[in-house]
Design a protein around this nucleic acid. Sequence first.
DNA 1: CTGAAAGCGCTTACAG
DNA 2: CTGAAAGCGCTTACAG
Lengths: 338, 338
Amino acid sequence: MVTLRTVAERAGVSAAVVSAAISGSSSVRMSEATRQRVEEAIRELGYVPNHAARSLKTSRTGIVATITPNLSNPVFDEALRGVQDAAEAHNGVVLISDSKRVAPGSNLMSRLVGTGMADGFLVRFLDEIDNENIATFEGRGVPCVVLNGPTDGNHICVWVDDHEGILTATSHLLELGHRRIALLGGPPSPFTVDARGDGFRDAFTARGLTPPGDEWIAHGYELEFVRTTTLRLMRSAVPPTAIVIDNIFTARGLLAAVADLGLRVPDDVSVIAYHDIPQADYYRPALSAVKMPLYEAGVRGYEMLQKMINGGGGRSVLVRRPGARIIDRASTRRITDV
Amino acid sequence: MVTLRTVAERAGVSAAVVSAAISGSSSVRMSEATRQRVEEAIRELGYVPNHAARSLKTSRTGIVATITPNLSNPVFDEALRGVQDAAEAHNGVVLISDSKRVAPGSNLMSRLVGTGMADGFLVRFLDEIDNENIATFEGRGVPCVVLNGPTDGNHICVWVDDHEGILTATSHLLELGHRRIALLGGPPSPFTVDARGDGFRDAFTARGLTPPGDEWIAHGYELEFVRTTTLRLMRSAVPPTAIVIDNIFTARGLLAAVADLGLRVPDDVSVIAYHDIPQADYYRPALSAVKMPLYEAGVRGYEMLQKMINGGGGRSVLVRRPGARIIDRASTRRITDV
DNA sequence: CTGAAAGCGCTTACAG
DNA sequence: CTGAAAGCGCTTACAG
């Protein structure tokens, strides 16, 4: 194995000089000629610093762990891309874990927390398990940023503005003439304030309209829940003419139900999905969606976590730039009379 | 910070005893009473061994890195679940990376390789970039197992039997009476032997039938490629009555093209997808698919990698248990005359 | 401008 | 059955 020592000997300098040449430490200065010699030796030997030794000494790993409920849900993928790009820019590495495996008290959890394997955690908040995990991190003083959590709660959260997002989606439908609109899906809110429901209702009240009652708002995240709820909604005496579905991944459950009833989108129901994914173009009809700054939230989450790792205080933030944007495809239509 | 020393002092023993109590090393023996005392001290202090110190000493991290082209492709998700479960069983941790970021010569690549951040790599093989990455690992003597590679090539590969899988899908269509069948999608084969194409053709020849010509076989992995190819195929003078699509994720491109032509599945074309995902139930029509032992391949890949990490020689293997299985949903139909 | 020394928190022969 | 010592490969004051 090639170590610092090997390089130092080859270059005819001490280990301290090699170390400084690599990390650019200011406490050790050297001539340009020396630096050149060291760099040449590094190249010739193919030297790479040992990660374990480095982090033992510095108490930093450069690794940030993300914990997310469902790896193959493409909605989180975009936020994750932001996290990864930010990490790359900071010379960091991202360790991705599935929260089903990082249950509180699990083997993996205890290996991750407190061993110094990672400098901090980015947790996608969805349900009670995540909540317990977050508490575990915070209880041990491990830096932790929550993605998709309430910014007015007890944790440091970074996410997009769900209120604005759902309001934008709903407003789009209202402007197309729809009045009988349902809000479907989205995780059962673990927060005191239900940002999604409020956004939905506020779109109506801002226009002087009475928002639909609670029977038009359903919370749940499973495809099967979305499917059966859509069935119930569309079979009711006065069915909705449009549905806001959170999110585009679970929209498949809605689409299946509509097809099973022999109905068509957008002829019989308009559909707009919360969050956008590239594949939406390939749905038939292509799904209209509201695009949120998920990528930006990922970047911001990483940066906030770094700040906390470096001893700075964390602060919850709602990422609002760029704002919610309608990506109009083919699943909504204008209606004149109902 | 609570260290080994703190625990040793609390328990009134030396550091060596604490270390042995934790790792079960056989070189140090102790009385049951002593072990109890140590364990109590560990519990009281909430001690967790420092990962960096441990791996510096042992040259093992317990971390395995997986590199995969597309995190949100649900097909790989199942293999990844296998990898993660196997890791959990071995007290290991899985670090997941996106291969678009681990480009050869990239920052991330050089941080991952040779620094000892991970003990070994599991690389999902798809294109030229992955190929270069694999070469980099092997060139540096870093243990590496390739998922989805050719078992008769130069690398240590673990994957499922694509020949059997596509043969099973094709046979299913043949048994339903189809003769004009196309094979669509799948990565352009980087291998000398095209297992998928062979499986397709062998299904015909095994029945004494002449397999379709090359114009009925298309290789490509992008949704757009699948869409335009389907368009071309279905618009030809004598279109196929059935299509085998590799894989179920790119099937969306096919479905979009069929819908755009005003055709219906399975009335106008039967469709069977290679690889199965839970969401297939929610496609309309629900997509029939061939389920492969992807989970098992993930487990096996992890285990093979561990063997290599421990100095054992690796060996390419095709995971064949359980064998390819048809999950019959609603996208294929029997035809009597064409 | 450069080198020698201490030490990060562990594990593992080795000595008693 | 238990303890003292060396050392994994780095970084960082500190001394020259």
